[in-house]
Design a protein around this nucleic acid. Structure first.
Lengths: 329, 329
DNA sequence: ACGGTTCAGTGAACCGTTTCAGTGAACCGC
DNA sequence: GCGGTTCACTGAAACGGTTCACTGAACCGT
């Protein structure tokens, strides 16, 4: 397709200043040239409306200045908030994010992760759907990867902001047990949709330890499907829910309302994440809070350092906090 | 940075098959070559693990297969939902989206829009913060642009999914008036933060027509700041709100709760958008529904056609619908 | 058997940068 | 005033594809 007005190239700037393209390239990045020449080049570039072509730059240099963000499942409101937060924080670091959505699908995660690498992102933040995939080891050599949520198995990640899901699950289940619930419906998320499902394993182990009788089923984090699944569990007689994402818990609210069942007197619900909307519901959703701002800050700090070539390999473990609001009777 | 295992290039595939690089390039895209050769090239490519480098491809051909999505303000839950929806719909069309967030800032919108063009996106979907910016005219020649929300002034857009904001505003204000409210606090969004603010103009005109006394102020769509602004208006004695985004209305809920003011008996709220969460609140948020699925479908259909080189220039006007749920007393 | 079309494939230019190796010239201490 | 650095800059080769203009062979009807 013919661009109507052709853009100025570096060669034209070179011609205009009587320098070589190489000198212009250096000047615009402030390397190896005299202050005076830099100024001259800047001026000429401004006059010609020249701006370096990011694609050509990426091809030649192998870097883009962008940071890839691969989300596990953007249906989830909490993950949406995380993505937006990371995007904003990166912007404050004069970087920008390429946001992609794996939609809870390991195969798609695989494809998109490679795609981001091929796009020459300087670093990658990933909230892995399948943290055990061999893919990560391959990616980690040659690209700094920061994982959020679960640690990447067998891969040298540049950083990790790990959720202590074991503690989070314990917190949630103990709370439910303390309130007298012995039989639970557990709605897990696509966030942990891999065969081994580390989070699910914790749930089963903890449930066993606490003597709880659980009925586990996977639910999507979008409201419609979550409501559907929650409804089925209600109809099956369940009255106490542990949802592995606040977004899923919202489905329990919706399904309960449809059936004229009141929360917390007839139905009890626990969430996981603490999305801002959870505090607005009536009653507020009791949930496990992961301090989203802290996660954003930590991940961005690590990833920006890594993208700049700073090798500090950090592992941050995020501690959960019970946020009691009244949805558990 | 040295890539540990170098990727195979097209020249290696050429060598392996005894063909020229050009022939391989054609073969992999199924042009001008015999079936037999195509098969041979495919096989060799698979064996070598060859995959075309998207950056080099973009530089040479000027296309990437990606579609840019420039959101007005991703703080807004509704716009988040829109972005996710568009991302998923594009995926179903074997395309993928590059999502960027203008954060309600026209200057940033300007920068990011050019950045997307420079990234060689095949087409652009934009939810303009400043639909009157001269930028759009410049972008539209050489790149198919589809706008959502407002039409782009003075630009030959490839398509438009326009919200009939005049009708939406009328619907909202008439509803409030009918319920007996004469004095309103209007919380507009950064979505319309340009000097002329077409949406704001509608509000003032309609308010004048209906004899309403309005007090208009801009609020951010994130919960914290929105709550802050709503609180100030409550403290100033306002008891009836028209919010130009459901996300802002959530702030009214929060601020009212803080002050122990009940909705709808002591405070009335109208939203604008209809985000799924609005139906979950108690009481449900009365709002103006824009049929987000329809918008997604329309925008994606147009943009995919445009990216494929199909020139049909469509303008779709979205009609609003009152979704009455009980937040207006 | 002949000019004219197709067909399958080639060679080289090109896309717009970056970067490596090198080149004078100026400058350094002694 | 001489070897050695540093400085400011240049030329050309990447980077990894696509595409334009051709070419030789096969095939066509007559």
């Amino acid at each position: 397709m013919p661009q109507p007005r052709k853009r100025a190239t570096i060669r034209e700037v070179a011609k205009a200043t009587g320098l070589s393209p190489a000198a212009v390239s250096y000047a615009l990045r402030g390397m190896q040239v005299s202050e005076e020449t830099i100024e001259r080049v800047r001026q000429a570039a401004a006059e010609l409306g020249y701006e370096a072509d990011p694609i050509a730059r990426a091809l030649a240099s192998g870097r883009t200045g962008m940071i890839g963000l691969l989300c596990g499942s953007l249906e989830d409101l909490w993950q949406q908030a995380l993505a937006v937060g990371i995007g904003r924080a990166l912007k404050d670091n004069d970087r920008y994010a390429l946001i992609l959505d794996a939609a809870g699908d390991p195969a798609r995660e695989h494809t998109l992760a490679r795609q981001l690498r091929d796009q020459r992102v300087d670093a990658l933040i990933v909230q892995p759907v399948d943290p055990a995939a061999p893919l990560w080891a391959e990616l980690c050599e040659g690209l700094p990867v920061v994982s959020i949520g679960d640690a990447l198995a067998g891969a040298r990640a540049a950083g990790e902001v790990v959720f202590d899901n074991r503690a989070g699950v314990t917190l949630a289940l103990e709370h439910l047990r303390q309130r007298g619930h012995r039989r639970l419906a557990v709605l897990t998320s696509t966030r942990a949709s891999t065969p081994d499902r580390p989070a699910d394993v914790h749930v089963m182990a903890e449930a066993a330890r606490l003597g709880l009788d659980i009925d586990m089923v996977t639910a999507s984090q979008s409201l419609g499907p979550a409501t559907q699944v929650a409804g089925e569990m209600l109809d099956a007689g369940h009255r106490a829910f542990f949802c592995f994402a606040d977004s899923i818990a919202y489905g329990v609210y919706a399904a309960s309302a449809e059936r004229k069942l009141g929360i917390p007197f007839e139905v009890s619900v626990m969430g996981y994440d603490d999305h801002p909307m959870s505090g607005l519901l009536t009653p507020g959703l009791t949930t496990v809070d992961w301090d989203i701002d802290g996660i954003v800050r930590a991940a961005v700090r690590i990833v920006v350092a890594a993208a700049d070539g700073n090798p500090r390999r950090r592992r941050i473990v995020q501690a959960p906090q019970l946020r009691e609001r009244g949805s558990v009777g």
